[in-house]
């Protein structure tokens, strides 16, 4: 892989790295290039930016970003989650936007689940036992380590990835209805010595090259049935009773897995409920 620094200032959007930080990064990018010689995608590294997705769309308009290239910002002042929710983005974590090809028609609906799943598999290869909270939040020991948001315009697909590396928002900062507490790699995995390095650039390069291999493999060789069955095995709360919020409605049920179209399957008594939108809040309180 190849690391490229953003050189230009995009006012209101992004700024290059500070000179002082760049020195460190040059060393890092040397290492990044060693992580995978066979995978030629590039990583654009920016300093502060409004959000890596915004910057990636802007680079896309300029024609500078190719498929499998990604944009990594070290800090965001307007990071976003789904439905324009705020994503708290202090320095030290991963805020990336990754350019995917348009998926074959039958995979299209599964894009966001696929993105979460292959990142989870990559983490697992690194020894971090990630579970997936439907549709694609990354949970580690029951706490949210990161999230994925896919944005699509015409035939262009960007996968936004946020990973809490050295810090995570405290309980007070989270939305009232947020499902789970947040955690970061430093406090959880770091302590365990599971990762050699918690440098965002290196970690991101590692994740990208691993995830890319998974992507190729799954999209080429898997049917949706196999894929969704495999994702089900990594789901958090599997077979437990959970709560899903759909607008004003609250739906309860036992989490059975995901259907071939990616929707969540809940069982309430004998009825099977398919859920394709809403937030999975978590285990029902009365179950402890």
């Amino acid at each position: 892989m190849k690391a490229i620094y953003l050189k230009k200032i995009y006012s209101d959007l992004a700024y290059p790295l500070d000179r002082s930080a760049r020195g460190d990064c040059q060393v890092l990018s040397g290492q990044a290039e060693n992580t995978d010689m066979t995978f030629s995608a590039r990583v654009y590294i920016a300093g502060r930016c409004s959000s890596s997705l915004d910057l990636a769309w802007a680079l896309m308009d300029e024609g500078n970003i190719h498929i499998w290239d990604s944009v990594l910002c070290l800090e965001q002042w307007a990071g976003r989650g789904q439905l324009r929710r705020n994503w708290i983005s202090p320095a030290g974590n991963i805020y990336a936007a990754w350019h995917w090809p348009e998926l074959p028609a039958k995979w299209n609906r599964l894009t966001s689940i696929l993105a979460g799943y292959i990142l989870a598999l990559s983490f697992r290869e690194l020894g971090i036992e990630i579970k997936i909270k439907w549709p694609n939040d990354l949970l580690f020991k029951g706490k949210k380590l990161g999230g994925v948001l896919v944005e699509e315009k015409k035939d262009k697909v960007l996968v936004g990835v946020g990973i809490n590396v050295i810090s995570s928002p405290g309980k007070k900062c989270l939305r009232d209805d947020s499902a789970v507490e947040a955690c970061c790699l430093l406090e959880e995995a770091g302590k365990l010595g599971l990762l050699r390095d918690l440098e965002p650039v290196l970690l991101w390069c590692e994740l990208v090259s691993r995830s890319y291999r998974w992507y190729e493999h799954i999209v080429r060789d898997h049917s949706q049935e196999q894929f969704t069955a495999a994702v089900t095995n990594l789901l958090a709360y599997l077979e437990q009773k959970v709560t899903v919020r759909q607008g004003e409605n609250i739906i309860y049920g036992q989490l059975m897995g995901i259907d071939v179209d990616g929707s969540l399957l809940l069982k309430d008594n004998h009825e099977l409920i398919r859920i394709s939108s809403g937030s999975l809040i978590g285990r029902m309180k009365d179950e402890g």
Binding site: Q82, T111, S112, V150, S276
Partner: peptide, 16 residues
């Protein structure tokens, strides 16, 4: 120009 946006399980499709 983006007219509206559709969410499909955290996949946000901008319709232009």
């Amino acid at each position: 120009e983006e007219l509206f946006n559709i969410s499909i399980m955290k996949q946000e499709k901008a319709v232009l």
